[in-house]
Design a protein around this nucleic acid. Structure first.
Length: 480
RNA sequence: GGGGCCGUAGUCUAGCUUGGUAUGAUACUAGCCUGGGGUGCUAGAGGUCGCCGGUUCAAGUCCGGCCGGCCCCA
């Protein structure tokens, strides 16, 4: 009778609906009054905070500093780099009035901050001694989504970080691009338990204005690709229009070499899709707002006191290990209700403790990923919980890796390519390097080049489309 | 980009064809009962029927526009 409380559709029957229900019912986010905008609720924001803190530490450890940029950018400034402007303008929100007065140079709500950041950088940078400049900005960006909005995956405003660095040499800038991508990969794989394929974007898919874009891509259970983060080598494409230059050691005025990079709350979307199941969210312990929930079970007031005091004792023990533990002492709902509730919210471990357990000197430990129960003696609580959390983190990563392996296929025949693409997959196929062939594939299958892996082979075969000699293999897929 | 569907209490929903200010469940509050997987009883409180306009004596219901949401296909 309480079927409506939980997730009412199965993940493999209606994936899209399943996803929407999890976002709303696990209280990660809710819809704002404006189309395409969402409100992040505390439970969802807490996941973002975990991710943010992990990445922020790594950035600071590698010499990056945080700053803050305003949200409004004058059109005259945004349009200075023409390809960049042309690429973003269809989805820019414009502020045209202040009060009743029309603004002559209308203001863009930042779709990304290259233009603004670099106009500032040109003021701050005079000498080679000012470099490298490595500033990161935790903020939000706005890009109007007309249709097909989806919480976390496609929203008109999203939380992200955007890093903008300036270097004296091309080599140093390119090193930065790679080191950031590695940092992203490490964070996503270790914290979110999501394996990614790293490589370059094709010319067609690269960031508008960049020399090249590196990316990490992952596959979702429905076979569609999700871009998890990008790191761009901008060369001198922005330093020239925005006048970011310095006097080098030989007293020669030189345009700087730049990079920009970002990851967004899209990662939360990936997390939901990859690890969740028919009962709801499944969170990797590293980013779970609550890692262990204790559900006390009791019949009488006497039992209640005894059970609760033991529950608090366990909580204190675990908190000492910096674990995030919650005791669910609500009297108004039954234990069964609590079990389902916390499973929907994806808490990795549950400890059940009742009078029977007290008598036997143990608790019941239930893991969210497998739903398996085991007895855990009081004296083994700490090591049992710690090792189980570790096991869950590893287990989730392993099963996500298996999914990626399962859905990645080597295909050299175009007919096979088309039929495999219908099923949803990462297709590793030879490509001649021409945009025209990408366009043909996009037209006939809806897929594009997600990534040209760094370790891509070129087996001397022929392009999947035009049959001309291939330049490299690339990963093709449909995407979010 | 194309096509369907939907909006009534916190949530889910009946009523709409054949106009007369609204049904039930759940959640909520109080008191009981119960408690190892969403299970009970009694009472109470909870509503601009998405918004704006039109038709009408009368609109949740009919008509138009707008806003918002979902799903499917590319």
């Amino acid at each position: 009778m309480s079927k409506e409380i939980g997730i009412t559709v199965k993940k493999n029957e209606n994936f899209s609906e399943w996803y929407t229900q999890i976002v709303l019912k696990a209280q990660l986010a809710d819809y704002a009054p404006v189309k395409g905008l969402i409100v992040l609720r505390p439970y969802g924001y807490s996941i973002w905070e975990s991710l943010k803190s992990s990445l922020d530490q790594k950035l600071k450890a590698t010499g990056h500093e945080n700053g803050f940029l305003p949200v409004l950018i004058p059109e005259s400034l945004l349009s200075k780099e023409s390809a960049h402007f042309a690429g973003f303008t269809p989805e820019v929100f414009w502020v045209t009035h202040s009060g009743d007065t029309e603004i002559g140079d209308r203001l863009a709500l930042r779709p990304t901050s290259e233009a603004l950041a670099y106009s500032m950088y040109s003021k701050w940078i005079k000498s080679w001694r000012d470099l490298p400049m490595k500033i990161n900005f935790w903020n939000s960006a706005l890009r109007a989504e007309i249709k097909a909005t989806k919480p976390f995956l496609r929203t008109s405003e999203f939380l992200w970080q955007e890093g903008h660095t300036v270097h004296t040499t091309k080599e140093e800038a390119e090193e930065e691009v790679m080191s950031i991508l590695d940092m992203y990969k490490k964070t996503v794989e270790e914290e979110l338990a999501i394996p990614v394929i790293t490589g370059k974007k094709s010319e067609k898919e690269k960031f508008v204005g960049a020399v090249y874009t590196t990316t990490m891509e992952s596959i979702m259970p429905d076979g569609k690709a999700l871009q998890m983060g990008t790191s761009h080598f901008l060369g001198q494409n922005f330093s020239k229009p925005f006048d970011v230059k310095f006097l080098d050691k030989q007293n020669v005025e030189t345009f700087a070499w730049q990079t920009s990079w970002g990851v967004s709350w899209r990662l939360i979307g990936a997390l939901i899709m990859l690890h969740g199941d028919d009962k709801g969210l499944v969170l990797p312990p590293r980013v779970a707002p609550i890692q262990v929930v204790i559900v006390p079970i009791y019949y009488s007031p006497t039992d209640r006191d005894a059970v609760l005091s033991k529950a608090l004792e366990i909580k204190e023990t675990l908190t000492k290990h910096n674990l995030r533990v919650h005791t669910d002492a609500r009297d108004e709902v039954t234990p069964g209700y609590k079990f389902n509730d916390w499973e929907m919210k994806g808490v990795p471990l549950r400890i059940e403790i009742g009078p029977k357990d007290l008598a036997k000197g143990k608790t019941v430990l239930v893991r969210r990923d497998t739903l398996k129960k085991m007895d855990l003696a009081f004296e083994n609580t700490e090591e049992g919980v710690l090792s189980m959390l570790n096991e869950i983190q590893q287990g989730l990563f392993e099963s996500a890796k298996n999914l990626l392996k399962e859905k990645t296929k080597n295909v050299t025949d175009y007919e096979e390519f088309k039929s495999e693409m219908e099923k949803g997959a990462f297709l590793n196929s030879p490509w001649c390097g021409e945009t025209k062939c990408e366009e043909i594939i996009k037209e006939s299958t809806g897929a594009d080049i997600r990534v040209i892996p760094f370790d891509a082979k070129n087996e001397g075969s022929t392009c999947i489309v035009c049959k001309n000699p291939s330049k490299t293999n690339a990963i093709f897929a449909r995407s979010y």
